[in-house]
Amino acid sequence: MSPIFYFLAMLTLGGAVAAMSLRNPVHCALSLVVTFVGLAGVYLGLGAHFLGLSQVLVYVGAVAILLVFVLLLTRGSGKDEFDERPDRWWPALGVGGGLGGVLIAVVLAQPGLALRTAPPELPTVRALGESLMTDFVLPLQVVGVLLTAALIGAAVLALSDRRRTPQDSGPVTSREEGETRR
Protein backbone atom coordinates (compact mmCIF):
# COMPACT_ATOMS: atom_id res chain seq x y z
CA MET A 1 0.00 0.00 0.00
CA SER A 2 2.41 2.62 -1.20
CA PRO A 3 1.58 6.18 -2.26
CA ILE A 4 1.87 4.94 -5.81
CA PHE A 5 -1.01 2.57 -5.22
CA TYR A 6 -3.19 5.35 -3.88
CA PHE A 7 -2.32 7.51 -6.81
CA LEU A 8 -3.23 4.74 -9.25
CA ALA A 9 -6.42 3.99 -7.37
CA MET A 10 -7.42 7.65 -7.54
CA LEU A 11 -6.62 7.67 -11.24
CA THR A 12 -8.71 4.58 -11.86
CA LEU A 13 -11.69 5.68 -9.81
CA GLY A 14 -11.51 9.25 -11.02
CA GLY A 15 -11.46 8.10 -14.62
CA ALA A 16 -14.41 5.83 -14.00
CA VAL A 17 -16.45 8.57 -12.33
CA ALA A 18 -15.61 10.98 -15.13
CA ALA A 19 -16.57 8.39 -17.73
CA MET A 20 -20.01 8.16 -16.17
CA SER A 21 -20.64 11.81 -15.46
CA LEU A 22 -19.18 13.77 -18.38
CA ARG A 23 -21.63 14.91 -21.03
CA ASN A 24 -19.47 14.61 -24.11
CA PRO A 25 -19.24 10.94 -25.16
CA VAL A 26 -15.72 11.26 -26.53
CA HIS A 27 -14.62 12.74 -23.21
CA CYS A 28 -16.25 9.75 -21.52
CA ALA A 29 -14.30 7.38 -23.74
CA LEU A 30 -11.06 9.18 -23.02
CA SER A 31 -11.79 9.10 -19.28
CA LEU A 32 -12.34 5.38 -19.61
CA VAL A 33 -8.85 5.16 -21.10
CA VAL A 34 -7.52 6.82 -17.95
CA THR A 35 -9.21 4.07 -15.99
CA PHE A 36 -7.62 1.43 -18.20
CA VAL A 37 -4.20 2.94 -17.69
CA GLY A 38 -4.70 3.17 -13.94
CA LEU A 39 -5.78 -0.45 -13.83
CA ALA A 40 -2.74 -1.45 -15.84
CA GLY A 41 -0.62 0.48 -13.34
CA VAL A 42 -2.20 -1.47 -10.50
CA TYR A 43 -1.39 -4.75 -12.27
CA LEU A 44 2.19 -3.62 -12.81
CA GLY A 45 2.41 -2.64 -9.15
CA LEU A 46 1.30 -6.14 -8.20
CA GLY A 47 4.15 -7.56 -10.24
CA ALA A 48 1.91 -8.90 -13.00
CA HIS A 49 3.91 -7.28 -15.77
CA PHE A 50 2.51 -9.37 -18.57
CA LEU A 51 -1.08 -8.74 -17.56
CA GLY A 52 -0.52 -5.03 -17.05
CA LEU A 53 1.16 -4.49 -20.38
CA SER A 54 -1.39 -6.63 -22.18
CA GLN A 55 -4.03 -4.45 -20.59
CA VAL A 56 -2.39 -1.38 -22.11
CA LEU A 57 -1.80 -3.04 -25.46
CA VAL A 58 -5.33 -4.37 -25.81
CA TYR A 59 -7.47 -1.84 -23.99
CA VAL A 60 -5.66 1.41 -24.67
CA GLY A 61 -4.31 0.40 -28.05
CA ALA A 62 -7.35 -1.34 -29.50
CA VAL A 63 -10.51 -1.21 -27.41
CA ALA A 64 -10.36 2.52 -26.79
CA ILE A 65 -9.83 3.16 -30.49
CA LEU A 66 -12.77 0.91 -31.24
CA LEU A 67 -14.86 2.86 -28.75
CA VAL A 68 -14.13 6.25 -30.24
CA PHE A 69 -14.59 4.92 -33.76
CA VAL A 70 -17.99 3.53 -32.83
CA LEU A 71 -18.89 6.85 -31.20
CA LEU A 72 -17.87 8.83 -34.25
CA LEU A 73 -19.37 6.55 -36.88
CA THR A 74 -22.70 5.70 -35.30
CA ARG A 75 -23.91 8.91 -33.72
CA GLY A 76 -25.79 11.51 -35.67
CA SER A 77 -23.46 14.20 -36.85
CA GLY A 78 -23.43 17.54 -35.11
CA LYS A 79 -24.50 16.29 -31.72
CA ASP A 80 -21.78 16.27 -29.16
CA GLU A 81 -23.88 15.78 -26.06
CA PHE A 82 -25.84 12.82 -24.89
CA ASP A 83 -29.59 13.08 -25.10
CA GLU A 84 -30.81 13.27 -21.59
CA ARG A 85 -33.32 10.55 -20.94
CA PRO A 86 -34.13 10.58 -17.25
CA ASP A 87 -36.82 7.93 -17.70
CA ARG A 88 -34.26 5.31 -18.73
CA TRP A 89 -32.12 5.39 -15.63
CA TRP A 90 -33.73 2.51 -13.81
CA PRO A 91 -33.13 -0.26 -16.37
CA ALA A 92 -29.55 1.00 -16.67
CA LEU A 93 -29.19 0.82 -12.94
CA GLY A 94 -30.70 -2.67 -12.93
CA VAL A 95 -28.38 -4.01 -15.63
CA GLY A 96 -25.30 -2.33 -14.20
CA GLY A 97 -26.06 -3.32 -10.64
CA GLY A 98 -26.83 -6.89 -11.67
CA LEU A 99 -23.57 -7.26 -13.59
CA GLY A 100 -21.62 -5.65 -10.77
CA GLY A 101 -23.27 -7.94 -8.24
CA VAL A 102 -22.42 -11.05 -10.26
CA LEU A 103 -18.81 -9.97 -10.65
CA ILE A 104 -18.41 -9.14 -6.98
CA ALA A 105 -20.00 -12.44 -6.00
CA VAL A 106 -17.67 -14.39 -8.30
CA VAL A 107 -14.62 -12.61 -6.96
CA LEU A 108 -15.65 -13.11 -3.37
CA ALA A 109 -16.40 -16.77 -4.00
CA GLN A 110 -12.82 -17.38 -5.12
CA PRO A 111 -10.77 -19.03 -2.43
CA GLY A 112 -7.66 -17.33 -1.16
CA LEU A 113 -8.65 -13.76 -1.79
CA ALA A 114 -7.68 -12.90 1.76
CA LEU A 115 -4.99 -10.27 1.69
CA ARG A 116 -1.56 -11.71 1.68
CA THR A 117 1.32 -9.75 3.02
CA ALA A 118 3.96 -11.41 0.91
CA PRO A 119 3.11 -12.19 -2.71
CA PRO A 120 3.61 -15.76 -3.82
CA GLU A 121 6.21 -16.67 -6.38
CA LEU A 122 5.30 -14.65 -9.45
CA PRO A 123 4.80 -16.72 -12.58
CA THR A 124 7.11 -15.87 -15.42
CA VAL A 125 5.87 -15.23 -18.94
CA ARG A 126 7.26 -18.61 -19.91
CA ALA A 127 5.16 -20.29 -17.23
CA LEU A 128 2.10 -18.36 -18.37
CA GLY A 129 2.67 -19.40 -21.96
CA GLU A 130 3.26 -23.02 -21.05
CA SER A 131 0.09 -23.26 -18.99
CA LEU A 132 -1.87 -21.59 -21.78
CA MET A 133 -0.52 -24.06 -24.29
CA THR A 134 -0.93 -27.18 -22.13
CA ASP A 135 -3.56 -26.98 -19.39
CA PHE A 136 -5.73 -24.31 -20.94
CA VAL A 137 -5.28 -25.07 -24.60
CA LEU A 138 -8.96 -25.85 -25.13
CA PRO A 139 -10.30 -22.54 -23.72
CA LEU A 140 -7.66 -20.73 -25.71
CA GLN A 141 -8.73 -22.42 -28.91
CA VAL A 142 -12.40 -21.77 -28.19
CA VAL A 143 -11.71 -18.10 -27.64
CA GLY A 144 -9.71 -18.07 -30.85
CA VAL A 145 -12.56 -19.65 -32.80
CA LEU A 146 -15.01 -17.19 -31.32
CA LEU A 147 -12.91 -14.24 -32.34
CA THR A 148 -12.36 -15.66 -35.83
CA ALA A 149 -16.10 -16.17 -36.21
CA ALA A 150 -16.71 -12.58 -35.19
CA LEU A 151 -14.11 -11.40 -37.68
CA ILE A 152 -15.57 -13.45 -40.52
CA GLY A 153 -19.04 -12.28 -39.58
CA ALA A 154 -17.97 -8.66 -39.79
CA ALA A 155 -16.36 -9.28 -43.18
CA VAL A 156 -19.49 -11.01 -44.46
CA LEU A 157 -21.67 -8.14 -43.30
CA ALA A 158 -19.44 -5.60 -44.97
CA LEU A 159 -19.26 -7.61 -48.20
CA SER A 160 -23.00 -8.30 -48.44
CA ASP A 161 -23.66 -4.62 -47.91
CA ARG A 162 -21.36 -3.84 -50.80
CA ARG A 163 -22.77 -6.51 -53.10
CA ARG A 164 -26.39 -5.61 -52.53
CA THR A 165 -26.39 -1.85 -52.91
CA PRO A 166 -25.36 -1.53 -56.55
CA GLN A 167 -28.51 -3.38 -57.63
CA ASP A 168 -30.68 -1.31 -55.32
CA SER A 169 -29.45 2.04 -56.33
CA GLY A 170 -28.27 1.56 -59.87
CA PRO A 171 -24.79 1.67 -61.33
CA VAL A 172 -24.31 5.37 -60.78
CA THR A 173 -24.57 5.31 -57.04
CA SER A 174 -22.83 2.09 -56.07
CA ARG A 175 -20.88 2.46 -52.91
CA GLU A 176 -17.42 1.67 -51.74
CA GLU A 177 -18.01 2.49 -48.15
CA GLY A 178 -17.36 -1.05 -47.05
CA GLU A 179 -13.70 -0.44 -47.72
CA THR A 180 -13.39 2.83 -45.95
CA ARG A 181 -15.21 1.68 -42.86
CA ARG A 182 -12.91 -1.20 -42.21
Binding site: L30, H49, L53, V56, L57, G61, I65
Partner: peptide, 22 residues
Protein backbone atom coordinates in the same frame (compact mmCIF):
# COMPACT_ATOMS: atom_id res chain seq x y z
CA UNK B 1 15.42 -4.30 -17.92
CA UNK B 2 11.94 -5.82 -17.86
CA UNK B 3 11.24 -9.48 -18.32
CA UNK B 4 8.52 -8.43 -20.77
CA UNK B 5 10.45 -5.63 -22.42
CA UNK B 6 9.18 -6.35 -25.91
CA UNK B 7 5.59 -6.24 -24.73
CA UNK B 8 6.30 -2.95 -22.96
CA UNK B 9 7.58 -1.55 -26.24
CA UNK B 10 4.46 -2.53 -28.11
CA UNK B 11 2.12 -1.44 -25.32
CA UNK B 12 3.67 2.01 -25.21
CA UNK B 13 3.72 2.20 -28.99
CA UNK B 14 0.05 1.27 -29.23
CA UNK B 15 -0.92 4.11 -26.88
CA UNK B 16 0.17 6.69 -29.43
CA UNK B 17 -2.83 5.92 -31.64
CA UNK B 18 -5.18 7.36 -29.07
CA UNK B 19 -3.10 10.54 -28.89
CA UNK B 20 -3.38 10.86 -32.65
CA UNK B 21 -7.13 10.55 -32.37
CA UNK B 22 -7.22 13.11 -29.58
Amino acid sequence: DLEVGLLFFFAAGASTELAVFM
